[in-house]
Amino acid sequence: MPAVARTLLVGLEAHDDRVELPLVELVVMVIDEYDADNFTFGRNYLGIEHSDDLVIIQITANNTRTVEQKRALYQRLAENLKESPSVRSEDVFVNLVEVLKENWSFGTGIAQYAQPV
């Protein structure tokens, strides 16, 4: 059950359900939009040219996936956003933050996934 944050320039059409995470229940999605003056990024990193259509997707999830599953996720996100709303795959920046299960609290001050003491 990941939490997802998307960051993009104001006016980009990346607000639909193209950030699909297969086989998981999405708990929260936060979308941050910035004016061009407040959205600074490297135009070229690792030989990948980024444009003003850059979409940054940060997923925080339990540390339970294999490298193969992660690669498949990144590929699927890029394909979905290329299909609609036509974001180039070079402009789909994904950051997966993996945490231990006890690092979540969904309310009431309780770490619901932590082992009982």
Rank of each mutant, 00 (worst) to 15 (best):
V4M: 08
V4G: 04
A5Q: 13
A5M: 14
A5E: 15
R6D: 05
R6W: 11
T7Q: 15
V10I: 11
L12P: 02
E13K: 09
E13Y: 03
A14T: 04
D16S: 13
V19T: 08
E20T: 13
L21E: 07
V24S: 05
V24L: 05
L26V: 08
V27R: 14
M29Y: 01
M29W: 04
V30N: 12
I31A: 08
E33Y: 05
A36H: 05
A36Y: 03
D37K: 11
N38Q: 04
F39K: 03
F39L: 03
T40D: 06
T40I: 14
T40S: 10
F41N: 03
N44M: 12
N44W: 06
N44K: 07
Y45S: 11
L46R: 10
E49P: 07
S51M: 00
D52S: 09
D53H: 10
D53G: 05
Q58F: 02
Q58S: 13
Q58V: 09
Q58C: 06
I59F: 03
I59V: 12
A61W: 14
N63C: 07
N63G: 02
R65F: 10
V67C: 09
A72N: 15
A72R: 15
E79S: 11
N80I: 06
N80Q: 06
K82Y: 10
S84H: 11
P85A: 06
P85W: 05
S86H: 11
S86N: 12
V87Y: 02
R88P: 07
S89R: 12
E90M: 02
D91N: 09
V92D: 02
V92H: 00
F93H: 04
F93C: 03
V94Q: 03
V94A: 03
N95H: 12
K101T: 08
N103D: 11
N103F: 12
F106T: 01
G107H: 00
G107V: 00
G109F: 01
I110T: 11
Q112T: 00
Q112M: 02
Q112K: 00
Y113S: 05
Y113P: 00
A114F: 01
A114Q: 06
Q115H: 07
